[in-house]
Design a protein around this nucleic acid. Structure first.
Lengths: 210, 210
DNA sequence: CTCGGGTGAATGAACCGTCATTCAGTCACA
DNA sequence: TGTGACTGAATGACGGTTCATTCACCCGAG
């Protein structure tokens, strides 16, 4: 619940990765609390005890999984927006890239989306730096748009970032939990973009909301 | 994990309510899995066993708590938007009312916000009708706005409802988990309204996003 | 090349604390 | 005295964690 092993406790090869992959699958399927360490071990093809050679505890395993996956997500998003110029286009690229990741790696998305929340509760002391980084990079896109005069400057960028993340996250959750035929989450990116850039308003007097 | 007791198992007076109130507090503080039934009993001022006179299991207690609180939330929101005319104003009233509820009843918000998610995982068979009702009523506001030509008709209302809920929920979570001085979530309602009605776009060519 | 002692990663059965749940008994009231 | 709501200590299952043991591999000596 407290500290956290930063890197491979030993020079151990890929076994640590195998365990993380298994944890991703098992946590995604059952959720953290109902997931069994012994099942993670089974899926990883190692003995129960081996997990404790690489991770301090079940909690530490979850934290390490966050760090690992969020690092990848942040890198992928940074790469996706890097070549794009113009705040609006960058924001759209961000949205498309995020929902694309959800589509391509559902179990990563499931762990981040569902477990992030409860972890922020039961690990109050864990600051979750990677997620903070995620929000910061989104807030930067907003701030740049405001500076360029392309975005409304009323909302503080960090709050706007949270709201946008809320949209993306909820959409991801709805898509992940949908049984039966799912809506096209990649196409939904354009709806999200439309809503966030233009808003719902279409009428003549929509300016006067205050 | 499965079935659920619809109403007071017995004619029992307010004891059932006392237990629900205690469960709300304890689940909000610890989360469902780390909450202890014995603590709920202690807070409610009843014996451990008494809880099982009113609820089948810990799971059933959580489900019953959802039903009870969501029912109140839905009623409060319905009441808040009922007298308001015009889709834009109704949507704003909905947003203000929801964030007002979060502000006034943080522990209700915490349970709904944080536990709703994991419950949708670990209780796959529980359909969560009250939450569906919540989304439906929000979708109705959107659909009316589209029908009146006041809202963009591109996005399917149920999806728009989910996105809007995402914004509200994430904002609630950010506010609830904030340690130290919190931002003013009631004031944030206007930012949310602004973002959802007008969008971020301010520049000349923001129409061309496709 | 072969042998044998040393090393430490890996194993998994057993341990042990932790609760959700039960139920035999109490008690207030009719 | 009978009834039934209520109690809370006892129960038993469960699962995270440990640790005595195994064994594949390495390396220096002969």
């Amino acid at each position: 619940m407290t500290v956290h092993s930063p890197e491979p406790a030993k020079g151990g090869g890929d076994k640590r990765e195998r365990i993380l992959d298994a944890a991703e699958r098992v946590f995604a399927e059952h959720g953290f609390f109902t997931a069994r360490v012994s099942e993670i071990a089974r899926v990883a093809g190692v003995a129960d005890g081996t997990i404790y050679l690489y991770f301090k505890s079940k909690d530490d395993l979850l934290i390490s999984l966050f760090e690992s996956r969020m690092e990848r997500v942040n890198a992928a998003l940074a790469e996706a927006i890097a070549p794009v110029t113009g705040p609006t286009a960058r924001l759209l690229a961000f949205i498309r890239a995020y929902l694309g990741l959800v589509h391509d790696q559902p179990s990563v998305a499931e762990v981040l989306t569902v477990e992030l929340r409860q972890s922020s509760k039961f690990m109050k002391e864990y600051a979750n730096p990677r997620f903070a980084e995620f929000l910061r990079s989104l807030a930067t896109v907003i701030a740049e748009g405001q500076a360029a005069g392309e975005f409304d400057a009323t909302v503080p960028p960090p709050l706007a970032a949270r709201m946008i993340f809320g949209v993306l996250d909820e959409l991801a959750l709805a898509w992940l939990l949908q049984r039966g035929e799912k809506f096209d989450i990649v196409r939904a990116a354009d709806w999200v973009g439309g809503l966030l850039i233009h808003g719902l308003g279409r009428g003549p007097d929509t300016r006067s909301i205050a």
